[in-house]
Design a protein around this nucleic acid. Structure first.
Lengths: 207, 207
DNA sequence: CCGTAGGTAGAACGATCGTTCTTTCTCTTG
DNA sequence: CAAGAGAAAGAACGATCGTTCTACCTACGG
């Protein structure tokens, strides 16, 4: 849940602040992003107005617009925060190819655990994309980047386990993951979890 | 996006139903629902206002509120129209158990074709659910009913093909279907199509 | 023939949308 | 100490949200 690179904002003059780099990290901005993330995920993006975020974060509108160009930028920051959290939770693949299979199992079971969490409301990226039809919008770009990373990671892992067709297998893994996310939100959580786990075992068995 | 009963409203003569059950079928109502369906699907539900629907359907607000209790009722009608279309397109399962496998193949390939259609923007129900967090809302009820019917149908079909574990297989079919819908919208259409088809073949082979 | 229902046309409601503005206060830092 | 950035507080912008209302027109079945 941390922002990454927000360099080059307003400073036209010498930006040589060693301790505080520009406007990125402040208590107010942090509260804003954290509050917005919770609200956007739980209730949908369009359903949550700036006023609501600002009020719930105990921050004024002026402060909000100092830290974010607008609502859309906040939405992108929200998705990037989820992306960051997902990537750091996944960690990096082990060097030893013999450990890759169990690494992918762990990555998958992390998703399985996510499905069971109390406030689970599906995939943040799938849900956001439902509200942003324009594929060129910054929101959709953020969605695409996350998904390409995720599928690429799974594909690479499956390749290293020696799967005969890693590209197709990565696509299957992603389908399994998406289906589980949707199924757990709109249907039976336990069934989604089981299907996901069994599917990954098939993949790891080279099937 | 075709509604099932397109040819049923123009009749000036044979319309001898005096009590007119609840929501009457009129040209204005039909235009309203058709326009709303296209807009809701293409741009998202919250993104499309009543004014917009009313203007694009060449109907006044007063007429709209005569036919629908409010926007939410229109959303539910939209989903029910998609549900109707899906059910009628699927048809009913053949009596002969030997034909069930090819029937399920056809149902699945209908979905595969849907993914390739020009304006495809994912599953109407998944997208709508993303915008309606409350599981008790009429919209979510409509979503649930559609999904339960769909999964139930697939499960029944797989049972009749003699699959050893039809319940799990039906869940897998649904996961495949959801994953393909999401993947085709947010990723590679062809890969989604291929994964879906291959997955169903596995299911039909009893795997 | 008249009554009524469904239609058009358009004004209006309060609420909320995202955004911008001015003003004042409180810190930190040179 | 002085300077300046960050934040608080709140007014205000035009636009749009979903909804309700009155008024008039038209078609049709009793």
């Amino acid at each position: 849940m941390s922002s990454t690179h927000d360099a080059a904002y307003g400073s036209t003059m010498a930006e040589q602040t060693p301790p505080a780099p520009g406007p990125p990290r402040s208590a107010a901005r942090d509260r804003l992003l954290r509050t917005a993330s919770a609200l956007f995920y739980a209730e949908g993006v369009r359903a949550v107005g700036v006023d609501r975020v600002v009020a719930e974060a105990s921050v004024t509108r002026a402060t909000f617009y100092r830290h974010f160009a607008g609502k859309e930028a906040l939405v992108v920051a929200y998705l990037q925060a989820v992306d960051d959290a997902t990537r750091s939770r996944a960690g990096q693949q082990p060097d030893d190819p013999a450990e890759v299979a169990s690494w992918l199992r762990r990555l998958t079971s992390q998703i399985g655990d996510e499905l069971c969490r109390p406030g689970f409301r599906g995939c943040a990226f799938i849900n956001a994309a439902a509200e942003y039809p324009d594929p060129a919008s910054p929101v959709r770009v953020a969605v695409r980047e996350h998904r390409e990373w995720l599928q690429g990671t799974a594909t690479a892992a499956l390749a290293r386990t020696g799967h005969p067709d890693p590209r197709a297998a990565g696509g299957r893994w992603m389908t399994l993951r998406d289906g589980a996310m949707v199924g757990a939100y709109l249907g039976d959580v336990e069934q989604a979890r089981t299907t996901l786990r069994a599917g990954v075992e098939d993949l790891l068995a080279g099937r």
